[in-house]
Design a binder for these strands. Structure first.
Lengths: 194, 194
DNA sequence: GTCTATATCGGGATAGAC
DNA sequence: GTCTATCCCGATATAGAC
């Protein structure tokens, strides 16, 4: 919630009922600990999502499940979404190649489903990366904004209930279902760009 | 790029060719300066986007233009997207009510277009807030990831060219066009949720 | 209003005992 | 392996001269 800088090694040690020096004994430094934790988290998430991608359900069903599973995984680990956003905001400065590699498995899980659907002729010509962008990142922001939604709602006066997880998931699934419809995606004029 | 904590008052002053003490003379502190800048930025962005929303084009066209304009505004101010992501990640701790109010104008610009389209019977029953979430936040992430896209592409081996702004904008416009189609949105079974 | 010099403090990292 | 005490630096903020 307060980020890499906000988490002091003292507090981390206290939370783990350890002494600060132990952290420096087991890890090369704060950043090394951070990367280790991230690799662990994204390995777990990647496993679950890759399992969905490689199941033998229909691609369209996998896509729906991917969305629901990503939301569920994110809710079960509420600290992950803010971390992802912060890393993006900071240009991924703190990540090393190995951590990137682990994260990319999540991307592949989703793009694999789409590629499969296209190869099977069940999906139209939608770009996997673009659909990944418009699927995963609203989820991450949705998850990360959960704590402040009330604060914003007070100012904006919208009904928070409309943003409950089930409705949000259904909305995303609806968007994706249309996006992958054969002969629906890339087609059509792009509209005014300026 | 390095966030609120990463930007030292010394460097800010140097960049402005001023002395650090001057900043503390004109503002109550670093946070006060930060809020003032954010209010200014979002006022400008809100003006442009509200102008699109209140123009007398058709709602569907406004939606397309909103997407293109948001991307353009974001590109013209490359530092804004990371700031938005970081603020979300930190639970909006640094924002005060006044800053929230200014930011909400951007939300209203988009939701207003959808509400108008629905009232005119041109849009189906899509939720304005949900469509805002799935429209604006992919854009913000897209903008914020521009610097690291190459690093990721190297590991993931995808073609970066597929992510150029025009294609991205067209993809989002396509998604939204389908989402607001009468009798297309909220309709249909939601699929498996677990 | 504009500057230099400095107070102050929090946090990463380590020395060194046991 | 595990701890306490400490070094050290960088950053916010202010005092006070001009």
């Amino acid at each position: 919630m307060r980020g890499f800088e906000g988490a002091t090694v003292d507090r981390i040690a206290a939370r783990a009922r350890l002494n600060k020096a132990m952290i420096y004994y087991h890890f090369h430094g704060k950043k090394d600990l951070y990367r280790t934790v991230l690799r662990s988290i994204f390995t777990t998430m990647g496993d679950g999502l890759a399992a969905i991608a490689s199941s033998n359900a229909a691609p369209a069903d996998k896509l729906d499940r991917f969305v629901a599973a990503f939301v569920a995984e994110g809710q079960a680990r509420a600290h992950v979404a803010p971390i992802m956003l912060r890393e993006i905001a900071e240009g991924g400065r703190r990540l090393d190649e190995e951590t990137y590699t682990v994260m990319v498995r999540v991307v592949r899980a989703m793009t694999g489903i789409i590629t499969e659907g296209r190869a099977a002729g069940q999906f139209g010509p939608v770009d996997p990366i673009l659909l990944y962008l418009t699927t995963v990142w609203p989820i991450v922001v949705y998850l990360a904004t959960t704590p402040i939604r009330n604060a914003l709602a007070r100012v904006a006066q919208f009904d928070v209930g409309r943003l409950d997880p089930e409705r949000f998931i259904a909305h995303l699934q609806m968007l994706n279902r249309h996006a992958v419809m054969p002969a629906a995606a890339g087609a059509g004029p792009a509209g005014e760009l300026s």
